[in-house]
């Protein structure tokens, strides 16, 4: 069943025409990678879905419901979580407060926190620490934990490995793989190996358009065509 569906999405930043008729879909239980060089419109696609940068044309449907025209908090309420590229912690709030702010149903607060701490045990040790004082890797874990406990059906994950040490990237990859058992994921990722490991399908973007797509089965990070798409 199609969970998320974008049809003819056009998005502008001022006069700049960023997304030029994007069509893509994510099915229930799928992990879909959105690949492409820097600046081709991947993050704008995610921001358009969240209605942070609303599209001027096109439709974005989630579980059959039109998202265009809704407020961002309503998109989140519909069951879409956003794990942004810059992590976007509430730096002056504690780790636990960041997590608490992400749980919509307060009756599930304790089990949600427990799940987050079980997934990333280091966060349990830092529960009262200000999120702004965490290391980059810990902040990424917190960002992912926030998305996981948000009782979402779909996660939009933007560059989760950006700026992280290889060991941390592996931890983040494991967490996303585990999460994919229960949620669908649209993943923007520059590290081709990680993206292909996690994703069932992929789309390639260039100049605000989808220029290629396919299944990841049998495709490796050494695939020449994909490498050419991603090279500057």
């Amino acid at each position: 069943m199609t969970f998320l569906e974008l049809e003819g999405v056009n998005t502008y930043y001022g006069e700049s025409h960023i997304l030029q008729g994007v069509d893509l879909h994510v099915d229930e239980g799928e992990v879909v990678a959105l690949l492409g060089r820097n600046g081709v419109g991947k993050t704008t696609t995610i921001r358009s879905i969240m209605q942070l940068t609303p599209p001027s044309e096109g439709t974005i449907r989630f579980q059959g419901e039109e998202l265009v025209g809704k407020d961002t908090y309503e998109v989140a309420d519909a069951g879409i979580g956003w794990i942004p590229e810059e992590r976007r912690m509430f730096g002056r709030l504690s780790v636990e407060e960041n997590l608490r702010a992400s749980v919509p149903d307060t009756s599930k607060m304790d089990e949600s926190l427990e799940f987050a701490y079980d997934t990333f045990p280091i966060l349990r040790e830092r529960t009262d620490q200000r999120a702004g004082d965490l290391s980059g890797g810990q902040q990424q874990m917190l960002a992912i934990a926030r998305g996981l406990i948000g009782q979402n059906d779909l996660l939009l994950v933007d560059e989760p490995s950006e700026g992280l040490a290889p060991q941390i990237v592996a931890n983040v990859g494991e967490a996303l793989l585990e999460a994919s058992d229960s949620v669908s994921i649209l993943l923007v990722e520059q590290k081709l190996g990680l993206a292909l490991d996690l994703a069932d399908r992929y789309y390639v973007m260039d100049h605000g358009e989808i220029i290629d797509q396919g299944d990841t089965a049998g495709v490796t990070a050494e695939d020449e065509q994909l490498r050419r798409y991603l090279s500057a």
Partner: peptide, 8 residues
């Protein structure tokens, strides 16, 4: 913006 994206 992030607060909105968390459903607030």
């Amino acid at each position: 913006e992030m607060a909105r994206a968390l459903g607030i």
